[in-house]
Design a protein around this nucleic acid. Structure first.
Length: 155
DNA sequence: GCCAACGTTGGC
DNA sequence: GCCAACGTTGGC
């Protein structure tokens, strides 16, 4: 029996990488590099090919879920951790035992209108969402099947 | 630009 | 192992 498909949410600041940037990318696929938080990394390590991802714009006006993507490659070493010129360079990461991983995701769809954070907060069915928890900053987070279903029904 | 919430670092 | 100091995230 194949593993059950899982659902996730990934945050990106549109000023650095938006869903439109993803659409314009070769093969509409990108490496999700730059994650430097252990909890977020560990969630990425749980991802399987075919898992579905909500694409979220943080530090945006308005902050919103703007579309979906899917996982097309499971975790492998994020090379930017060794790049001195990269914003996400991590001098403490040992090349013989790299700390940080990334996955590849591929564009699936862009919502006709973004689902703003403010709107999501009004949805009773989404009350338990990690995204909506006070002070939640996690950039890669799990989404329950029911939350996923409800969000798609809103889109 | 402010600042609350959170994660990490490092002295002890 | 504690915890103060610091840095970052991200909504507002």
């Amino acid at each position: 029996m194949p593993q059950k498909r899982r659902y996730w949410l990934m945050k990106s600041e549109p000023s650095s990488f938006s869903i439109d940037d993803l659409i314009k990318t070769t093969s509409q696929t990108t490496s999700w590099d730059g994650v430097r938080n252990y909890q977020a990394r560990n969630f990425m390590r749980e991802m399987a090919i075919g898992d579905q991802v909500l694409f979220y714009h943080s530090n945006a006006d308005p902050p919103a879920i703007v579309g979906t993507a899917e996982v097309v490659n499971t975790t492998y070493t994020d090379p930017s951790q060794f790049d001195h010129n990269d914003d996400h360079y991590d001098p403490a990461s040992d090349p013989s035992s790299p700390r940080w991983d990334m996955v590849d995701i591929k564009y699936v769809r862009k919502f006709s209108r973004p689902l703003a954070l403010e709107q999501l907060r009004k949805e009773t069915k989404l009350k338990g969402m990690v995204l909506l928890r006070k002070g939640s900053r996690l950039s890669v987070q799990p989404v329950s099947p029911l939350e996923w279903q409800h969000i798609l029904s809103l889109a």
